[in-house]
Computed example of a mutant assay.
Amino acid sequence: MFFTLLGISFFPGVVNLIPSYKIIDALGWVNTSWAMIIPGLAGMGNIFLVRQFMNGLPKELDESARVDGASDFRIYLSIIVPLIKPILIVCALFSFTGSWNDFLWPVIVYTDVDKMPVTAGLLLLQDIYGNYRMIGQLMGSAILAIIPTMLLFLFAQKYFVQSINLNSGIKG
């Protein structure tokens, strides 16, 4: 299944725009935040990061919990989830940054201008010829667009370092 997803990811993202929009429309998510959140979380980059991180987890942790009589669900909930929390936070941060900086997808799924992210809304400061008449407002809006990403990175910085650790859970 992983290699099938990896093969599909070789196609450019533009190829998936129409099928993705049809799925979002069928679910009734047009003009909702779900149209931005769910497709961003299910990206192949995040799947690859979590898979590689979980491949680095020692198998001894699962085996010792199984010897102690823990069920598969208990092993997953009590051992695996706390260990993969840093990489899940990094994936969420990557998804937020990608969705926040995306231009094409918000313009397609949001018909209401008030719901568009700031970066897609910056287009509204242009005239029909692509000239910026309100350069002061454009620069102010660009600075405001940077602030949430910077704050999230500052608060999640320790999880970046923890997600790089390949020997998680093993002392020695």
Rank of each mutant, 00 (worst) to 15 (best):
S99G: 12
F153E: 00
F53Q: 06
L138A: 10
A92T: 06
L144Q: 02
S9V: 10
L41T: 03
T4P: 02
G140H: 04
G28S: 10
V90D: 00
P86D: 04
S141C: 11
V107R: 14
L104Q: 09
M139Q: 09
I147D: 05
I147Y: 04
I84G: 00
L41A: 08
Q157D: 08
G140F: 08
S71E: 02
I79T: 03
N16W: 14
Q52G: 12
P12E: 03
S99L: 04
S33V: 10
D102R: 05
L166Y: 03
N31I: 09
L123H: 14
F96E: 00
A42E: 06
G28T: 09
S163R: 02
L152W: 03
G98T: 07
P58L: 02
W105Y: 00
V109H: 04
A70S: 12
K85E: 06
I23P: 04
L124T: 15
V14N: 14
L83A: 06
S64H: 04
L77Q: 10
V90G: 00
F160N: 02
M139W: 08
L17Y: 11
F2K: 15
G69L: 01
P117K: 06
A26K: 10
K158L: 03
V30D: 04
D102Y: 01
I128W: 11
L144I: 12
L57F: 04
D127R: 11
N101C: 05
G45N: 09
A156F: 13
G169V: 02
T4N: 14
D68I: 00
G140Y: 06
I164H: 05
Y76G: 03
E63N: 13
S95V: 03
L83R: 01
S9F: 09
L123T: 15
S33Q: 14
S71D: 08
S71N: 00
I80L: 11
G69Y: 01
P106R: 06
D102C: 03
F11Q: 08
L154S: 08
K115R: 15
A35Y: 02
N165Q: 10
S163E: 01
N165H: 10
Q137C: 11
L124F: 12
G13T: 12
V15E: 06
P148W: 02
I135S: 15
S163V: 01
F10K: 13
F94I: 14
G56R: 01
T97E: 07
G140E: 07
K22A: 15
L17T: 14
M150A: 15
R133N: 15
Q52K: 11
E60V: 03
L17G: 13
Q157V: 07
G172A: 06
G169T: 01
G98Q: 01
A42Y: 11
L124G: 13
N16C: 14
N46E: 08
L41W: 07
D114E: 13
A156P: 00
F103H: 03
S9I: 07
I143S: 12
I75L: 01
L5Q: 15
L124Q: 14
F96C: 06
V30L: 11
R51M: 08
V50N: 03
L27D: 04
A142C: 13
K85R: 12
M36S: 07
S99V: 06
F94E: 05
P82C: 07
L122R: 09
I18A: 12
L27V: 12
I84H: 08
V90Y: 05
F3A: 15
K59P: 00
